[in-house]
Amino acid sequence: MLMTDVLRHVWPKRRGIEHYMLLMGIVIVICLTIMALLAPIIAPYDPIKTYVGKPYTPPCTEHLFGTDRMGRDVFSRILWGARSALAVASLAVVIAAAIGIPLGLLSGYIGGPIDRILSLIMDSIYAFPSLIMALAVAAALNPGGATSITSAMINTSLAISVVYIPSYFRVVRATVLSVRENLYVKAAQALGADVLTILTKYVAPNSLAPAIPIISMNFADAILTASGLSFLGVGLPPYFPDWGVDLATGWRDLPNGAWWMSFFPGLMIFLATLAFMMIGDALNELLNPRRGMK
């Protein structure tokens, strides 16, 4: 009953542009997920294996997206790249939300000196240019390169997540400041509820809606930042199939006319970012309580 209510709210009879943005974003994300999941089955070649074809082969029927300077199949690398892109971005967003949201709740509800100190720390992270911040953290986590792919991915995610913690913190804290003044919070206190109950059952469920669009916005940004980090050499190792890595190695061959090596990874980054941006924007619009008043 509730589920259908939600569905009717998200997909009503009268729809605006934001409904179609949401649909398009979701379709692209589902395609990316399928790509990532089925990469081992649908990829025609091993993405890491060199000289599966002649180096610098332009797109043709054998190599849909061509081959790179070491004769690796670009199409296979793109498919496998969806895995690392989604894994790194989702891990980064989950870590950032898992730290930023509870801190924002606590800080906003308790107030006082704890709130002051936390806000100061968050604001100073926020004030720092994000890519430089991520770069610094990634460099600190990966001195001289990570030992394995898994740790490289985790470290990259961590580096990116640090940048996003303040955005969750700020949004949630600001909402809590107004939510905690609601009479139902006082009524809960009058019934003898403790701080933990009030935070988890009364304040949190009413404060999290503004954080949802941020999740998808950050997802988009995380894919870009992860590519940026790999591009700069502090993210994933160069042989690994990753859009950012491929873009970084591919662009050097642009002057030779080998556009396919950087075009396809770039296109994928663009599509993934666009999809998450569209979902974020649409949710932002659809979840706005003042919606429908204009």
Partner: peptide, 26 residues
């Protein structure tokens, strides 16, 4: 924490505005 045992159980309160005293997500 001693007050919490009294609130609700010994003394409880009914507020003025029924539109805002119930948690909308509960």
């Amino acid at each position: 924490d001693e007050l919490r045992k009294i609130r609700g159980k010994e003394i409880s309160m009914i507020f003025q505005d029924p539109m805002t005293t119930l948690n909308p997500t509960m």
